[in-house]
């Protein structure tokens, strides 16, 4: 039985990890830690775990989930790295590209397995899009477009979405939305030091912003890839991801689905994944199993998220 330690016991732990980590035969939450004793006590009760100081948790847990606000991730993940240890860092992975690359490298040097919690990668339609695009169905990637918006109803404990410069919609929802585009297009697999040119940013306010639209261009292996992102906490958006290639386009929902649309010169077709999830927690659960038991494809490995962090940093700072 893998003993899991939870660093941070905020909203995501109480709303998501309770469903993904309770009642499992292969792993259980044994330790919890939070700066707020009340949050730690609440999580300890829910998981029937021990509320302990961070250093005790780091010493005794087999696997650690780091979920406090993003600005703390670099220091906390570094504190958790040990040989043979599995660490799952909630999204967004880091708030700077330098930290993203450095912490992934340090994990590798220590012999720890570092992952990032982007559970949408387990969604059936996204995995299907990634596979088909990877097979060259639409040729070389020429553009990625991603939009997602809706009323913000997530109740955080720390209010970081309105207080922290890394709590804005780009870092929050946008990290999911951009990740879907980068994962599907395979751009998360290329060397993450690609050139980024920010062409336009239109946002409702300085960070943390709540409505963020941007156009950008990536230079990958000498080829330009045009990018567009629009994310909002204030209005519903069409919630679509579109990946354009030299021979066609793949479009799909930014939400949970089992279908994608492929448009080529031959026409427009719907392709269905072999399986469908009834709710998004199935994706969350699958991600945890991948990370805690065996991530065979490396889909959640930290080095696959360095480029995404660099891109978000460039957009947020433009």
């Amino acid at each position: 039985m893998i003993k899991v330690g939870l660093v941070g016991c905020g909203a995501v732990v109480h709303r998501m990890y309770t469903k993904g980590l309770l009642g499992r035969s292969a792993y259980r939450v044994a330790f919890v830690s939070d700066l707020d004793p009340a949050q730690a006590a609440s999580a300890a009760e829910v998981f029937d775990a021990q509320a302990v100081d961070l250093d005790v948790l780091v010493d005794q847990a087999d696997a650690i989930v780091v979920s406090p606000p993003p600005a703390t991730h670099a220091a906390l993940v570094r504190a958790c790295l040990r040989p043979g240890r599995t660490v799952l860092c909630e999204k967004p992975y880091m708030t700077s590209g330098v930290d993203a690359a450095a912490v992934a490298r340090e994990a590798s040097e220590v012999g720890a397995s570092l992952y990032v919690g982007h559970f949408r990668r387990a969604f059936p339609h996204l995995a299907l899009a990634q596979r088909l695009i990877g097979l060259g169905l639409i040729g070389d990637i020429t553009g990625v477009s991603a939009c997602e918006g809706g009323r913000f109803t997530w109740r955080t404990v720390s209010d970081y979405p309105v207080r922290d410069i890394h709590g804005g919609v780009l870092w929050d929802t946008g990290s999911h939305t951009l990740d879907m585009a980068l994962f599907a297009s395979g751009l998360d697999r290329v060397a993450p030091d690609f050139a980024i040119e920010v062409l336009r940013v239109d946002k409702d306010k300085s960070e943390p912003s709540h409505d963020f639209l941007a156009d950008f261009r990536l230079e990958i292996a000498g080829r330009p890839v045009d990018g567009h992102v629009h994310v909002s906490r204030k209005q519903s958006l069409p919630n679509l991801i579109e990946i354009a290639g030299t021979r066609g386009k793949v479009s799909f929902s930014a939400g949970l689905d089992d279908r994608i649309r492929i448009t080529t010169e031959a026409g427009s077709e719907i392709v269905k994944a072999e399986r469908a999830f009834e709710d998004l927690m199935e994706g969350f659960d699958l991600q945890l199993r991948h990370v805690l038991l065996k991530d065979r494809d490396g889909d959640f490995a930290a080095d696959r998220f360095i480029g995404q962090v660099r891109l978000m940093e460039a957009l947020a700072n433009a």
Partner: peptide, 18 residues
């Protein structure tokens, strides 16, 4: 415009072939 109850699901249904 930006209706989460109708405009959004209609677009999603159109794109996903539902």
């Amino acid at each position: 415009a930006a209706s989460g109850a109708w405009a959004l699901p209609i677009v999603q249904r159109l794109v996903s072939g539902r």
